[in-house]
Design a protein around this nucleic acid. Structure first.
Length: 198
DNA sequence: ACATTAAGTGGTG
DNA sequence: CACCACTTAATGT
């Protein structure tokens, strides 16, 4: 949990519930609130000029949603879409900023969180900049698993659908499917009941 | 049982 | 690889 819920509540925070596939905010909207996921999964996405969805990042409980936009004067560059039923703590921007002034600990946590996610962005950018689909997928798998404590082979199950995986790597779902099968033959991943283990 | 979504296959450019 | 067409498997109501 990035910031204690009671602290957020004490600064104007309120709980909101969303159904799966709801928009928390959309591209071009002006950021006015801090959002912290209490439960559920959220994706940040946008549609490219070809009409293809590209996922910028995946967020889960405890994380905040595009909080960095509260520190700069820009509109949202992505949509925030729920991927499941969600409950989210929402705090008005002004009160959130006041809270950071009054609680250095929270300010440090936010700074650390932003740094961490920015670092992850660097890693993903390098993965996606790879020329071959195989390297992109390998890199993305390693990236995902890096967040899990169990480092033993095939201990990590990819929870994403092939389609979502494609939207993250910028590849076609057919390419993801075929490459994944190729990686299975190479022993890089294991596939059981259509589930991918790495 | 029927509709919908995801996985998988073949073939073309 | 992307893109298109289509089949098969899995899920949902």
């Amino acid at each position: 949990m990035l910031i204690d819920l009671d602290l957020l509540r004490a600064h104007g925070g309120t709980i909101h519930t969303y159904d799966s596939h709801d928009y928390i905010f959309q591209i071009e909207e002006t950021p006015r609130c801090y959002y912290q996921i209490v439960s559920g999964d959220v994706k940040l996405n946008y549609t490219n000029e070809d009409g293809k969805e590209l996922i910028q990042s995946l967020l889960t409980k405890g994380e905040s949603v595009c909080e960095l936009l509260l520190f700069v004067d820009h509109k949202y560059p992505v949509n925030a879409v729920t991927m499941s039923d969600c409950t989210i703590m929402k705090v008005p921007k002004v009160e959130f900023l006041h809270m950071l002034d009054e609680h250095p600990r929270a300010a440090i946590d936010v700074r650390t969180y932003i740094s961490k996610t920015l670092y992850q962005k660097f890693i993903m950018m390098q993965n996606i900049a790879s020329t071959s689909a195989e390297e992109r997928i390998k890199g993305t798998l390693k990236y995902f698993k890096s967040f899990f404590p169990d480092k033993t082979p095939f201990s990590y199950e990819v929870k994403l659908t092939r389609q979502q995986f494609a939207s993250i790597t910028g590849l076609r779902t057919e390419t993801v499917i075929r490459t994944l099968k190729k990686l299975e033959k190479e022993g890089f991943v294991k596939i059981e009941d259509r589930k991918v283990y790495f």
